[in-house]
């Protein structure tokens, strides 16, 4: 059954604050094999003009992906998550995430489209710091593939 178009424009409550930790950044940078010292060495980060170590660009997905749970598990929306694949991802940054940040994410449904039996859902996650300043926006397109035989 197609997703209800009336969900377009819906916003979800902000998530509880996520505190970005130095060791989490290190773990993530090592997992993607990135040895840039601005991720692990405070002095190297300061030399680049940052007050703390910063996170690799795609680290933000940890937060926006958790926040999107509210959308994909919204029983009223009724998305069949077993059929969902990640279609597109985009980030628009005001600044890099850094250790010590306490960040909240507010998720919004930007669009719902039906394409060849697939449901295409665009979710936007706005990430703000403790002072209410914008840090990054994550745009995630999820595609729920048509069930077999339809």
């Amino acid at each position: 059954m197609p997703l209800d178009q009336s969900f377009v424009g819906r916003s979800y409550p902000p998530t509880r604050p996520y505190e970005v930790g130095r060791e989490k950044i290190r773990e993530f940078a090592e997992a993607v094999g990135d040895t840039n010292p601005v991720y692990t060495d405070v002095e190297a980060a300061r030399a680049q003009g940052y007050p703390e170590v910063i996170a690799p660009p795609t680290f933000a997905f940890i937060l926006t992906y958790q926040a999107a749970d509210q959308v994909v598990n919204d029983p009223e929306l009724g998305l069949d998550y077993s059929r969902v694949v990640h279609g597109d991802q985009k980030f628009v940054y005001s600044r890099p995430l850094r250790a010590g940040d306490r960040l909240t994410v507010t998720s919004h449904i930007d669009s719902i489209k039906s394409l060849a039996g697939n449901e295409v859902l665009a979710v936007r996650g706005e990430v703000y710091d403790e002072d209410g300043q914008h840090v990054v926006t994550g745009h995630t397109v999820l595609v729920a593939r048509a069930p077999e035989g339809e």
Binding site: N36, V38, I54, V85
Partner: peptide, 14 residues
Amino acid sequence: TGDPGAVVEYGVRF
């Protein structure tokens, strides 16, 4: 760039 913070937008399609 040397500075990862120089990336102001980044998007892909899988």
